[in-house]
Simulated assay, not measured.
Amino acid sequence: MSPLTARLLLLVCLALPLYGVEKVRNREYRKDPDADKLGSCIQGPAGASGREGNPGTNGIPGTPGIPGRDGVRGEKGECVSEVFEEPWRPNYKQCAWNSLNYGIDLGKIADCTFTKLRTDSALRVLFSGSLRLKCKNACCQRWYFTFNGAECTAPLPIESIIYLDQGIEGLCEGVKAGLVDVAVWVGTCSDYPRGDASTGWNSVSRVIIEELPK
């Protein structure tokens, strides 16, 4: 063997071990692709729960929001009016005369002014006193009430054509509110001659007027 060949064999023997060591190092540092999935350590037991922290302080108040817009205007409501009637209160008057002794046969005997409060009410009138009629033959006299100078028409006149101890009494409707002149008159009867009439002889005569609801 020539000296050149012997040197080449020596170099190959020295280089082979170094190549093997480098290959082993590259294997050690190569990353396993499944290492991240499996992990390198076993997970231990969970630790004890921690204590709650102290409450925090209130934050800074916020700024006021933008004012809202007006809503849609609603529909106009219906106007409902309630009618309250005033409670009825008594309204009456009495006029009296002592020993009237009025001997006329035709005309007004006495009157009494009354204030009527309502139009839709009735007036109750009463004359209490002595009524006398004297005549030689058949005769008649008529005593009656008037209201502001006219006889009652609703429903009918209030009258008496004979001697009555209980007097003249009745209800009259249709009289307007305000001052009412209530009067007692004496007059003749139709188809009968006039007699000698006398009213309130030697006794008390009175007219009572009372306003009553219908």
Rank of each mutant, 00 (worst) to 15 (best):
S190G: 11
A110Y: 00
W143V: 10
Q166C: 11
P55S: 11
P157R: 03
L8K: 06
R51H: 15
E52T: 03
G187D: 02
V80G: 04
L9Y: 13
K176S: 12
W201A: 07
D36A: 12
R7D: 07
P90N: 15
K134I: 06
G174W: 06
R89I: 09
A154L: 13
G59N: 02
L212V: 15
P64F: 05
P90R: 09
K76L: 15
T199N: 10
P193M: 13
T199L: 11
V186P: 04
G47L: 11
E52D: 08
D191S: 05
N101C: 09
K76G: 08
E75H: 00
C13Q: 03
N98L: 07
K76Y: 14
I109G: 02
S81G: 06
V175R: 00
Y163V: 15
I109Q: 02
I158S: 00
E22A: 09
A183T: 05
Q94K: 09
K134P: 01
V72C: 09
P33H: 04
L14I: 13
G187F: 03
R89Q: 12
Y102C: 12
C189A: 10
P155S: 10
R69N: 14
E169W: 06
A150S: 14
S2N: 14
I60C: 09
N148F: 03
G149I: 04
L164T: 14
G44Y: 07
V83M: 11
L106N: 14
R27I: 13
L212A: 08
L156G: 02
I158M: 03
G129Y: 04
T146V: 09
G174V: 09
V12T: 09
G71E: 14
L164G: 08
L100Q: 05
C172S: 05
S160A: 15
R73A: 13
S49A: 15
R69I: 15
P3G: 08
D191H: 04
N91Q: 06
T188F: 04
V186Y: 03
P33G: 08
R194W: 00
I162D: 14
A183R: 01
D105C: 06
L171Y: 12
L156H: 05
K93Y: 03
E86W: 00
G167E: 10
G103V: 07
C140H: 01
I60F: 05
